[in-house]
Design a protein around this nucleic acid. Structure first.
Lengths: 113, 113
DNA sequence: TCCTATATATTGAGGCGCGATATATCGCTC
DNA sequence: GAGCGATATATCGCGCCTCAATATATAGGA
């Protein structure tokens, strides 16, 4: 079980990175995607995910459209905006800045193991 | 300026790692240490640091002792407990789990650049 | 018909950073 | 010996965040 604060810090960069890689996706699929990507270590719930998606949309980083597939119920697909791509770069840089400090403290050799 | 949530997620592992590496230190020094370690990118304030130190002490991860150096005013020195060392390992593993997901999404090749 | 999986949405409780503020002392300069 | 900046610790409260719980709806299979 990961600490809340670590979930909080990683949810935005991970969400943006998933949409950047997958092109577009919807809530339920994203939950499963991150579950697989992390070997089950990260388990977002609906109560975590949807508020984040709505926040990203309010901030203009993602846009959404409803779609109804043949069979199965309607889904709300999300896609990165141009602003969202820029935001991902920023988030990535910030994460790596902090990560660099931790790697330095834990020992630079560990980065290669 | 780093996002609050990223500060929140990193403050505990960084604090534990600093004390693990330095043996012991005190609030004011830790603030300068992290400033230098991060090339000025991470700037903790007293309002961030002291509550965290107190929390770590309540959790039994650090222990403290007042000391009065020759010249200069008294300082409260902090040191990791055995529990604190174990907590650092856990925090480290959790951070690396999340970092692994991000590296995977951003592209594994980036890890070498 | 009923159950399970799929799918989105909201609320409220609890947790946390950090700017602002308070308090105190050292060492230097005028 | 007054004044000041650097050193040093401490607390409060605003605002933001997660996430369990809850609500709603539908597809497909038993």
């Amino acid at each position: 079980m990961l600490p809340k604060v670590l979930i909080a810090a990683s949810v935005k960069p991970i969400m943006l990175a998933i949409l950047a890689q997958d092109g577009e996706s919807y809530g339920y699929e994203i939950i499963q995607r991150i579950h697989n990507l992390s070997d089950g270590k990260i388990q977002w719930t609906a109560g975590t995910l949807y508020p984040v998606l709505h926040r990203l949309e309010t901030e203009g980083l993602v846009e959404s459209m409803w779609r109804k597939p043949d069979g199965g119920r309607r889904r709300k697909y999300y896609r990165l905006t141009t602003q969202g791509e820029a935001a991902m770069s920023t988030e990535k840089q910030q994460w790596m800045d902090v990560n660099a400090v931790l790697v330095r403290l834990w020992g630079p050799d560990l980065a290669l193991r």
